[in-house]
């Protein structure tokens, strides 16, 4: 490549990684799919790259009775292939299975996907819908941030330059169902015109919705949390007219732009259609 003065460090622990990032213009590298593209087109010129591929404590999926923990360096393909994830978090499983192509899924990591913060990404809506939190560490602090509050703007997160997402923690709630649905009308593997992640949690009667989440990607600078639309589901039994009404309410939450994947008007219409369909998917149909 054009430059040979970028340092390339390969730490084997989170501690080492956090030490290594303490340099101006240093960046973490996960699977590298986005970073390599930015670097080869000379859009970024990091002074140091801290590759996390050999930090084993950042890898793997751990499931207990109350939560699912996924290490930041777990690949998207591993998430898509995990049968327990498919059972407990069908929305996340399906989002992980549709991203890009098989190579992107094999290379891309969960942490990298979150940190890149492209608002067309499929995984964030699926995760926010199930109340996922990011565990974040720096040399001086440890914090947990709800993914609902993780995105600060287009390609921007709340992470400080010295902070690292180490894992994502997803609480397991009984009676919660989740789904993810994307709309790519032109070509398989394209970025979505719109993607919708949703979850419905039911009260003990098994019918009344006690909590609901609707999150959309591709229709704003960040993943859009359609709180009002979700609110309209709570306390109902999620019948047809309620779903239709909730889906219509996402129109007020989104901020789509015209691009080659659709005009803003079309994305607005499709946001409603696919929210309705995603909610139906949550209900098992």
């Amino acid at each position: 490549m054009q430059s040979t003065d970028t340092e390339f460090l390969i730490p084997t622990s989170v501690g080492e990684a956090l030490q290594a990032i303490a340099k101006e213009d240093a960046i973490f590298l996960g699977g590298g799919t986005s970073t390599a593209l930015l670097y080869k087109t000379r859009l970024i010129e990091p002074s140091r790259v801290v590759w996390l591929g050999n930090v084993n404590e950042l890898k793997g999926i751990r499931i207990s009775a109350s939560e699912v923990r996924i290490g930041a360096m777990t690949s998207v393909a591993e998430i898509a292939a995990d049968s327990e994830i498919a059972r407990l978090l069908p929305g996340l499983s399906s989002a992980a299975g549709v991203i890009g192509n098989a190579r992107v899924r094999a290379m891309a990591t969960l942490g990298g996907a979150l940190a890149h913060a492209d608002p067309r990404q499929d995984i964030p809506p699926a995760l926010i819908a199930v109340d996922a939190k990011a565990s974040i560490r720096s040399l001086s602090s440890t914090r947990e941030v709800s993914l609902a509050e993780f995105y600060a703007g287009f390609l921007e997160t709340v992470l400080d330059p010295d902070e690292l997402v180490t894992e994502v923690v997803i609480p397991i709630t009984s009676n919660r169902r989740s789904a993810y649905l994307r709309y790519t009308p032109t070509s398989e593997g394209d970025y979505p015109t719109v993607g919708v992640g949703s979850s419905l949690t039911f009260a003990d009667d098994g019918k009344t919705v006690s909590a609901a989440k609707i999150i959309l990607c591709g229709v704003g600078a960040v993943p859009i949390i359609a709180a009002q639309a979700a609110q309209a589901l709570i306390g109902t039994t999620a019948d047809e007219s309620v779903l239709r009404n909730a889906a219509a309410l996402v129109r007020g939450a989104i901020d789509p732009q015209d691009d080659e994947r659709g005009t803003a008007d079309y994305k607005t219409e499709m946001s409603e259609v696919f929210t309705y369909r995603c909610l139906r998917l949550c209900l098992g149909n």
């Binding site: 032109t186 070509s187 398989e188 593997g189 394209d190 970025y191 080659e260």
Partner: peptide, 16 residues
């Protein structure tokens, strides 16, 4: 020309 990569200039893949 705005379609300056195969991410934007789409040709059919086997699933399409």
């Amino acid at each position: 020309v705005w379609a300056l990569s195969m991410g934007d200039f789409k040709i059919p893949n086997v699933a399409d």
